[in-house]
Design a protein around this nucleic acid. Structure first.
Length: 563
RNA sequence: UGGCCCGUGGUGUAAUUGGCAACACACCUGGUUUUGGUCCAGGCAUUCCAAGUUCGAGUCUUGGCGGGCCAGCCA
């Protein structure tokens, strides 16, 4: 039956594309992802990558990867390599459609000459400061440069010499001749070329002039036969210029469509700020798991599927959006819940001696590897007289809603036995150093023959068999939801979270994880998802906490605490 | 007395030609549970304001108000 299915609604970009296809404006769909290789990709880019690649796939077209490398002073090969790795890891493939704006420099130059010939561009000798002054302000029109009506021949000659390196940096520029009084500042004779005697990572020293973004981007789109040039909102004002250049050249005319960039709560997304975080050592590098970069998320253990689901989930609109980091974490948990094997690990160990358990005895207990995936099977976990449990799982004087271990109380050790706390051992200053318990030998596996119930099940690790590990617990990088929303003349850095990283060196994990390779993911039962960090060397495993499990008890504590 | 864009729960996204404001996250209740996880059930909005058109407005009109972007030889 093909009855009226509630058709999935189209976002405005897809609506525009389908409209174009229907009208016959374009025969198919070709999109592009155009990063500048001057930094690492972040989740905001992931949204754009997912959009452009899925758009192409959805409409049977293709998506190009094009490096917008028009500013040799900031771009580097290492960024190109990192960007490609990130896109591949996210799960997208540009099928050999890898392009560089720098490949079009010669064509761009020829087109610039064409515009000069047509009287639509001129060489300006004004200094940077003079150009700024002539540009006017947001509310007042600009004034024409004295060189605006230079003869075509002179422009041609000067432009040629600019290319030949006859002038110093900043001495002259090539400008489009449009309208110095336009209310859109981008149309007030925008600069097309500047003199930049710098070594380009691909073209070397063959050029001493480089095209500006506005002059390079649309033309690159046209050369590649892009149909839909999807970019972010801040380029909306540039669209009239994009269209002007294309029309002046009478070349293939892609449609530029602008959507709202992604903002994530409790982090920053601007390349400048991310660079500062790295350079000022607020984080350990671009792939520090606290960063919102793709490489950081990979290292932290976020599955690419989760990032893609998130990117699709936030939607495509024109309103400015700040998505809660909680939504990203939701997708991460959703994926990891199904894919991660369970294991027991104690982050902050508290020693427990089971007094009625034989000294040298060891039990091997059956444990389920993943309750969400039966095919994951089971494993054996060793148990002994001395074990560790989580410090947070014991309270000497528990509040009402705490139903874990406490003096005189019985709880279950997961997959093992029911134990009852009989004594609390403290050091000279009153800190709890050890718990004494008794176990019920009849409860092997976790159930008592008499059917009595306990309110809590705790994870644990055998003291004799457990593996020492370092655990890196990550929290939000910023305490403020929008770090950019700084009061007065404050510094955005002031809300950097001093507790964004907490390193625990004395964690103890069950022996089954021995030898796990970097990147291996686990769920530490009742705590969260963790993955082996590449810093791991030799015997000591280093784990990154990818994300915690949802924690109802934490919410209760927070509420009661505030009450 | 510049131009362009945008206003739907705490957050993000929906709502056929105007026709009962839907979904997800978060939060709250309760149920199941050998993870306080997962899962299941339920709760949580007079659509920025005002006036108008209409039997009927989140959708249309007008006027306000609020937010974002733009004055790089950055992208």
């Amino acid at each position: 039956m093909t009855t009226a299915e509630p058709r999935p609604s189209l976002d405005f970009v897809r609506t525009a594309i389908e409209d174009d296809l229907k009208q016959g404006r374009f025969p198919g769909v070709v999109t592009r992802f155009p990063p500048e290789p001057n930094g690492y990709l972040h989740v905001g880019h992931a949204k754009s990558i997912c959009l452009n690649f899925t758009l192409a796939a959805q409409y049977g077209g293709k998506c190009h990867l094009r490096f917008d490398d028009t500013n040799p002073t900031r771009e580097e090969q290492r960024y190109i390599d990192a960007i490609k790795e990130d896109i591949r890891w996210l799960g997208f493939n540009w099928d050999g459609n890898e392009f560089y704006a720098s490949d079009y420099f010669e064509q761009l130059y020829a087109w610039a000459v064409q515009l000069i010939d047509a009287g639509l561009a001129y060489v300006d000798d004004l200094s940077l400061e003079e150009i700024r002054q002539h540009r006017g302000t947001l509310t007042t029109p600009g004034r024409p440069s004295p060189h605006r009506d230079r003869p075509v021949e002179e422009n041609l000659d000067l432009f040629r010499k600019m290319r030949d390196g006859a002038y110093e940096n900043g001495a002259r520029v090539l400008r489009a001749k449009i309208d110095m009084a336009s209310p859109n500042i981008n149309l007030r004779d925008p600069v097309m070329y500047r003199i930049l005697k710098a070594k380009h990572h691909r073209t070397g020293e063959t050029w001493s002039i480089y095209p500006m973004y506005d002059w390079a981007h649309g033309q690159s789109d046209a050369l590649e036969g892009i149909t839909h040039s999807v970019c972010t909102l801040e380029f909306e004002d540039h669209r009239p210029l994009y269209d002007w250049f294309i029309r002046a050249l009478a070349i293939h005319h892609p449609r530029q469509i602008e959507f709202a960039r992604l903002n994530l709560s409790h982090t920053v997304m601007s390349k400048r700020k991310l660079l500062e975080l790295v350079n000022e050592n607020h984080v350990a590098g671009w792939d520090d798991p606290r960063m919102p970069t793709i490489s950081a998320m990979r290292r932290r253990g976020y599955p690419p599927e989760a990032i893609r689901a998130f990117a699709e989930g936030v939607g495509v609109t024109k309103r400015q959006q700040t998505v809660s980091i909680a939504l990203l974490e939701h997708h991460v948990r959703e994926h990891l819940n199904k894919s991660s094997p369970r294991v027991m690990g104690v982050i902050k160990p508290l020693k427990v001696v089971i007094e009625n358990y034989p000294e040298d005895q060891t039990d091997e207990l059956d444990a389920v590897n993943n309750p969400e995936d039966e095919s994951a099977g089971t494993r054996q976990v060793p148990f002994g007289r001395e074990i560790y449990i989580e410090q947070d799982d014991f309270m000497e004087d528990p509040p009402r809603k705490f139903f874990r271990l406490a003096p005189g109380r019985e709880v279950r050790l997961r997959y093992a036995y029911l134990v009852t706390c009989t004594d609390v051992v403290k050091d000279a200053s009153g800190n709890i150093t050890e718990l004494r318990c008794t176990y019920d030998p009849e409860s092997r596996g976790g159930n008592a023959p008499d059917g009595r119930k306990v309110k809590a099940t705790l994870h644990w690790v055998s003291a004799k068999h457990g593996l020492g590990a370092e655990v890196r617990e990550y929290n939000a990088l910023f305490t403020r939801e929008d770090p950019g929303d700084v009061p007065e003349d404050g510094d955005w850095r002031e809300s950097i979270n001093p507790e964004s990283l907490n390193v625990v060196r004395q964690a103890i994990i069950e022996p089954s994880v021995r030898g796990a390779a970097p990147g291996t993911q686990y769920q530490f039962e009742r705590i969260g998802y963790f993955c082996v960090d590449p810093d791991t060397t030799g015997d000591t495993l280093i784990f990154n906490r990818t994300v915690t499990l949802r924690d109802a008890w934490a919410n209760i504590k927070k509420r009661e605490g505030n009450a």
